[in-house]
């Protein structure tokens, strides 16, 4: 499987009288078709690493290659357009826009990208919502959806522009176990069946155990990488 994202010695430090080393000298690759988890205790820098990988934050040093291209030095607008067209994000809290219906929230990235017209975006959004089992509730605003439903809308939104990389920041952190299992199944399916790369930060060992690649962090560094695919027969 091909590497979509490659990090080389990424370092991120919060400046201040007492500098905080969020991420220290992290090198890793995220591959297509794999469900990768980043685990570790609170404050180990896993979310910070995810923001760096998602081009939301900039590293202080190190290189980040997306599709073989150095992206850490790009301008804010260039990075935004990569996020828009190629990445999908699912956060711990649903992070839907409260003024918009589920359908409109899913349409948002498509309308911003402008690849589809309004009707095209609408029908694709409906398809995506149907795929996560929310076709019936597409007109509901976020306050009329349950926590699990909102998170599924967020996943549908993350898929809007058919991204090659999906990043999750504790996507199940706010959900009960039943909803949590459903969301994880969806994410795994996206990696295994859709040929996308999926990387999630989680503190749930149960989720980490079923991931293909498990990256364990401690104190801003990578402690250990467990690649379970190696033990499986070649798929």
């Amino acid at each position: 499987m091909s590497a979509i994202l490659e990090a080389r010695s990424l370092t991120r430090t919060l400046a201040g009288p007492k500098p905080v080393h969020l991420v220290r000298d992290v090198s890793l690759t995220i591959e297509r078709g794999a469900f990768t988890t980043i685990v570790g205790p609170s404050g180990c820098g896993k979310s910070s690493l995810l923001y760096l990988l998602g081009l939301i934050d900039r590293p202080d040093s190190g290189e980040l290659l997306f599709d073989g291209r150095e992206v850490s030095a790009l301008s804010g607008d260039e990075r935004a357009s990569i996020r828009l067209a190629r990445f999908g994000f699912v956060f711990q809290f649903h992070f839907l826009l409260p003024e918009f219906s589920a359908l409109e929230n899913v349409m948002l990235p498509m309308q911003r990208l402008g690849r589809l017209d309004r009707d095209g975006a609408r029908s694709r959004a409906l398809e995506l919502l149907t795929a996560v089992g929310l076709g019936e509730k597409s007109a509901n605003t976020p306050d009329r959806l349950s926590g699990g439903e909102r998170q599924r809308v967020a996943i549908a939104r993350a898929l809007a522009n058919d991204p090659v990389l999906i990043l999750g920041d504790e996507p199940t952190g706010d959900l009960d176990s039943r909803n949590s299992a459903r969301v994880i199944e969806d994410l795994r399916a996206l990696a295994h069946e859709g040929g996308r790369a999926v990387a999630c930060v989680t503190h749930d060992p149960g989720i980490a155990e079923i991931s293909d690649v498990q990256i364990e962090m401690l104190d801003g560094r990578i402690e250990k990488i467990i690649d379970r695919r190696a033990r499986l027969p070649a798929a």
Partner: peptide
């Protein structure tokens, strides 16, 4: 601010 962060992270530019 929260919505702004969402929009920014899903790829809206500063100009938007």
């Amino acid at each position: 601010r929260r919505d702004i962060a969402i929009m920014r992270s899903i790829g809206f530019s500063e100009g938007d």
